[in-house]
Simulated scan of single mutants.
Amino acid sequence: MSTAVPPPYPPSYGARPPARGRGLAVAAVIVGAVPILLGGLWPAISISLFTSSNYTLAGVVNAAFALFTCLISAVAIVLGIIAARRDAADCLLGGIAIGLGAAQLVGTVLSFASSSIASALY
């Protein structure tokens, strides 16, 4: 009886390049989630501002919060696009970041537009 000898291993083609991390894609999703999480706190802040009867301060803080939300949403969209184009493995997380940022940006712009139109009419 002869024993079969396993074939030798194929020649090595050198070390693999280091795998890219998903840091940018994860950062994009986290940045995209920040305005949504802050949006959950905003009603409590808004109620406390309006109950203090300082309506000018409430309006200024509301406008600043809306601009901050738009800025953070735009950053999430840009980071999501960069992450999605960089690596095929990051397409899902990049797409989620783009969706979160775009939804928040559209919601903030429509909210601002509707309140501006309502204040002009009444």
Rank of each mutant, 00 (worst) to 15 (best):
L41I: 14
A4P: 10
G40W: 07
A84F: 00
A27P: 06
V109L: 09
V5Y: 08
P6D: 03
I45E: 06
S2G: 00
L67F: 15
F68P: 00
V5D: 15
A102N: 01
S119V: 03
V34C: 05
S48F: 01
L24C: 11
V61E: 14
P43N: 13
T51A: 08
N62M: 06
I77Y: 02
S73F: 00
D87V: 02
M1Q: 08
R16Q: 05
N54A: 00
Y9T: 10
S115H: 13
F50L: 14
L105M: 05
S46K: 07
S115Y: 13
Y55F: 15
S119N: 05
R22E: 09
S53F: 05
A102R: 06
Y55S: 11
S115P: 00
I30Y: 08
A89H: 15
G95R: 09
P8H: 13
P6M: 02
D87E: 15
C91D: 01
S2F: 04
R16C: 00
A28P: 15
A89I: 08
T108E: 04
V34G: 00
S116K: 09
F50G: 08
V75W: 09
A66D: 02
L24A: 04
V29L: 07
Y13K: 15
A118E: 05
F68N: 14
A66H: 06
A63D: 11
A97T: 09
S116F: 15
S111D: 06
A74Y: 06
S116T: 15
I72T: 13
D90H: 03
L105G: 02
A118G: 00
I82W: 04
L110S: 05
L49P: 00
L121W: 02
G14E: 13
G94M: 10
L105K: 11
S48P: 03
S12R: 13
A66T: 08
P8I: 08
A74W: 15
A113T: 03
L49M: 00
T108L: 01
S116E: 03
P7N: 12
G59A: 09
A27T: 15
A89W: 05
T3V: 05
I77R: 01
A15W: 02
T108F: 01
A63S: 07
L121Y: 02
V109I: 05
L41H: 10
I36R: 10
P11Y: 00
G23K: 02
R20S: 13
A97C: 10
Q104A: 11
S53I: 02
V61W: 08
G40Y: 09
S48C: 01
L110A: 05
F65M: 15
A25C: 07
L67R: 09
F65C: 03
I72S: 11
A25R: 00
A89T: 14
A113K: 02
A102Y: 14
P6I: 06
L49D: 03
A58N: 05
A97F: 03
W42Q: 11
A27Y: 07
L49R: 03
P10Y: 08
G107N: 05
G21Q: 09
A28G: 07
A58K: 09
S48W: 04
P18T: 01
A33P: 02
A120Q: 02
S52P: 01
Y122K: 10
A88D: 12
L57F: 07
R22L: 10
V31M: 06
A33L: 14
I82L: 11
Y13A: 08
S119A: 06
T3F: 06
